[in-house]
Amino acid sequence: GPGTPAWLARLWWWAAGRWYDRHFTAPLNRWRATLGLAPRAHAVGWADEADALIGAFPAWYATPPADWPARLQLTGFFLADGGEAGSALDDELEAFLAAGPAPVVFSAGTATFSARRFYEVSAEACRRSGRRGLLMSTAPGQLPAALPPGVRAVPYAPYGALLPRAAAFVHHGGIG
Rank of each mutant, 00 (worst) to 15 (best):
M136D: 00
N29P: 11
A167E: 12
G45D: 04
G86E: 05
A38G: 07
V44C: 08
R71D: 06
P39I: 13
L162I: 02
C126Y: 05
W12P: 01
G133Q: 01
G86A: 05
G160E: 15
Q142I: 02
R10I: 05
R22V: 09
W31G: 14
L72Q: 14
R10D: 08
E49M: 06
W60S: 11
V170A: 03
A111T: 08
W19C: 13
A6S: 10
A167R: 11
S122T: 02
P140L: 15
F113N: 14
T110V: 10
A125I: 00
A41V: 12
A146V: 15
G174M: 09
G133R: 00
D48P: 01
L37V: 08
E49W: 02
A98S: 14
R128P: 01
G130F: 07
Y61I: 03
A108T: 05
D48T: 15
I175F: 12
F106H: 07
P148N: 03
D21E: 12
A157V: 12
T25K: 12
E84C: 15
H23T: 06
Y61D: 10
G176A: 15
G83V: 06
A9Y: 11
A16M: 11
P101M: 09
A66M: 08
A6Q: 07
R127V: 00
P65A: 11
R30L: 12
R152Y: 07
A139D: 11
R152M: 14
A115T: 09
T138Q: 11
T75S: 13
E120Y: 00
A80E: 14
E84I: 04
E49Y: 04
Y20M: 08
A145D: 14
